[in-house]
Nucleic acid binder design. Structure first.
Length: 423
RNA sequence: GGGCGGUUACCCAAGUGGCCAAAGGGGACUGACUGUAAAUCAGUUGGCAGAAGCCUUCGGAGGUUCGAAUCCUUCACCGCCCA
C-alpha cells in the first residue's frame, strides 16, 4: 500500500481529477468522505463498483466513509450523462431500493469498525423536509444561472433538441445541498464520484465556501473503458448486477473471467485489493502465458468471493469446469441441478422418453435452443449440437440419455446450454 | 391544406409483372483454428417436409392479371418542400 491514499488511488489509475489540496488533506488527516449512489434500482451494478471500492480503500487508510443513498435526489433525476429526461419514481419504490442497496454496500464497506466505521445515510431524510422558499433563499441565492449553464452536464443537454426540465436543472443544487448538509452535520470535507460528477461536486464545494467560509474538496474517478470500445459492465443479457437474484454468482464470475487481456491488469488495479507486487506478477503472466488466463481467474475469484462469498465462488468454479467442456457422465442429478442452476430449463414428461423416445429435433425446439425444427436440423447438420456434452447426431432421445432419470443436458455450440427436467 | 418521396426479413438496403423465400452489407448462430481472447477461413440465417415439393411473407385492406414485393384503389405512418 502506498504511503497515502491519493498516491494509492493514483497508481491504480483511479484519479481522473482532484481539486487542489486533496493530496495534503488525505495525507495529513483522517477525512470524512462521501460518495452518492442513486436509488433507481433495487441493486447496484458493476458500474457503481468503482466509487464503492474507492471508498473502501479510503476506509482502509483510516478515513471515514459515508455512502449516501440518493433517496431524495433520485426523485429528481441527474441530467449528467443522461440523454433524456428520467422517469420519476415513487417514494415507496425508492425506499425499497435504498434498503436493498444497503446490504450490498456492506460487502465492501465495514460498518462495524471501531475507529472509522462506514456510515450510510439517505438524503431523503433532509431533502424531503426542505421548504421551497427557504431553499431558494438560502441555497439558490448562491448560484448564478450563468454558473449553472456553464456546467458540462447542463450544456450538453441544452444543445440537444429535448432540452432538460427545470427539475433536472436544479439537480445540481440538491447535490450541493447534500454536501453542505454533510459538511455541517458530519464534518464531511470530501466528495467523490465518477468523472461526470465533477460539475456537481465543485458546485457543492463552492456552496460550502460561500455559506460557511469552509474548505471542501472533490475527487473524481475515470470512466472505466474497454479496449474493444464497447461499454463496460454490459453483456448480451444486459447490465451486470451485484445482487445474486439479478445476476447469478456464476454469471458474475464469468463476467470477470471474460475480461480482455488488454483490460485485465487495469481491472485488477481498480477493483481488487491485491498488492502492487501481486498485480505486477499477474501482469507479466498475461504477457508470458496469456492462454493460462491467470489474471482473469484471479480477478474473477477476488470479485466473486467479496461479493457473494466463498461458497458461491466454489460453486461458480465447479460449474465453470463442467460448462466449459467437462465430462458430465460421472455426475449425479444433485450435482447437475446445482451446476446448471443458471441455465435456462424446461420440463418434459418422462413418458416422452420411454420406448422409442422423442426425436432430438423436437427436444431442441421445446428447450428453446432452436427456434424451429428446421433450425434444429441445421444446427445438427453443422455439428453444433451436444447431448450431455457429447456431439450428437439426429436421433431419438431415450431414457438411456436421461441422467439419473431426471435431466437431459443440451448444448448448442460452445456455451449455449439448456437443461431438460424430466418429470 | 397543396406537392413530392418513402414504408422489403433482426437492422441497413437492392429489387418496377413470371427466372423472388426475395441481391448485397451489418448483426447473429455453427464449424475449423484457439486461450472461455482476438484475428482469419467456411457454412447457416421464414415455416413444414427434408428427395422433390408445399405453405406463409415485402406497412394494412381491397382490386387488376393465368401470374404481384413490382400495376390500380384506399387507409395508416414517416420524410422533404410549399402555404
Amino acid at each position: 500500500m502506498a504511503a497515502n491514499a491519493l498516491d494509492e488511488l493514483a497508481w491504480r489509475g483511479m484519479v481522473y481529477a482532484s481539486m487542489d489540496g486533496v493530496s495534503d488533506l488525505l495525507a495529513n488527516q483522517k477525512v470524512t468522505v462521501y460518495n452518492g449512489f442513486d436509488a433507481t434500482a433495487d441493486s447496484l451494478h458493476i458500474g457503481h463498483m468503482v466509487p464503492l471500492i474507492a471508498l473502501a480503500r479510503l476506509q482502509r487508510f483510516g478515513h471515514h466513509p459515508i455512502a449516501v443513498a440518493g433517496g431524495g435526489t433520485t426523485m429528481i433525476g441527474d441530467p449528467s450523462g443522461k440523454s433524456a429526461e428520467r422517469n420519476l419514481m415513487t417514494q415507496d419504490a425508492i425506499e425499497y431500493n435504498v434498503e436493498c442497496i444497503k446490504k450490498q454496500l456492506s460487502h465492501f464497506l465495514d460498518f462495524d469498525l471501531k475507529s472509522n466505521p462506514a456510515r450510510l445515510v439517505n438524503n431523503a431524510d433532509w431533502l424531503l423536509k426542505l421548504n421551497l422558499v427557504e431553499f431558494l433563499r438560502d441555497v439558490g441565492k448562491h448560484f448564478t444561472v450563468n454558473y449553472m449553464l456553464a456546467k458540462d452536464s447542463v450544456r450538453t443537454r441544452l444543445e440537444r433538441e429535448e432540452g432538460l426540465s427545470f427539475t433536472e436543472f436544479t439537480y445540481m443544487l440538491m447535490q450541493s445541498y447534500d454536501f453542505l448538509h454533510l459538511y455541517d452535520t458530519l464534518g464531511c470535507q470530501l466528495q467523490t464520484g465518477g468523472s461526470d460528477q465533477w460539475g456537481n461536486i465543485t458546485a457543492g464545494a463552492e456552496l460550502i465556501r460561500r455559506m460557511r467560509g469552509g474548505q471542501a474538496y472533490g475527487l473524481v474517478y475515470p470512466l472505466i473503458t474497454k479496449a474493444d470500445g464497447t461499454k463496460f459492465g454490459k453483456t448480451e443479457s444486459g447490465a451486470v448486477w451485484l445482487s445474486a437474484e439479478r445476476t447469478s454468482p456464476y454469471a458474475f464470475y464469468q463476467f470477470w473471467m471474460n475480461t480482455d487481456d488488454r483490460d485485465v491488469v487495469n481491472y485488477l488495479k481498480v477493483f481488487t485489493f491485491l498488492t502492487q507486487e501481486r498485480i505486477e506478477e499477474l501482469a507479466s503472466s498475461v504477457v508470458e502465458r496469456p492462454e493460462a488466463r491467470e489474471a482473469q481467474r484471479v480477478l474473477a475469484r477476488e470479485m466473486t468471493a467479496t461479493m457473494h462469498g466463498d461458497t458461491a465462488l466454489e460453486r461458480a468454479e465447479a460449474a465453470t469446469q463442467v460448462l466449459f467442456g467437462g465430462e458430465i457422465s460421472g455426475l449425479g442429478a444433485a450435482e447437475i441441478a446445482e451446476i446448471f442452476a443458471d441455465v435456462p430449463s424446461s420440463a418434459l414428461p418422462k413418458s416422452q422418453f420411454e420406448g422409442e423416445g422423442t426425436p432430438l429435433v423436437d427436444v431442441l425446439v421445446s428447450s428453446g435452443l432452436s427456434k424451429s425444427k428446421g433450425d434444429a436440423r441445421r444446427s445438427l447438420g453443422e455439428g453444433g449440437i451436444y447431448l450431455n456434452n457429447r456431439r450428437a447426431a439426429d436421433a431419438n432421445v431415450t431414457l438411456n440419455d436421461v441422467i439419473d432419470g431426471q435431466f437431459v443436458v443440451l448444448r448448442k455450440g460452445r456455451k449455449n446450454y439448456a437443461l431438460i427436467k424430466v418429470q
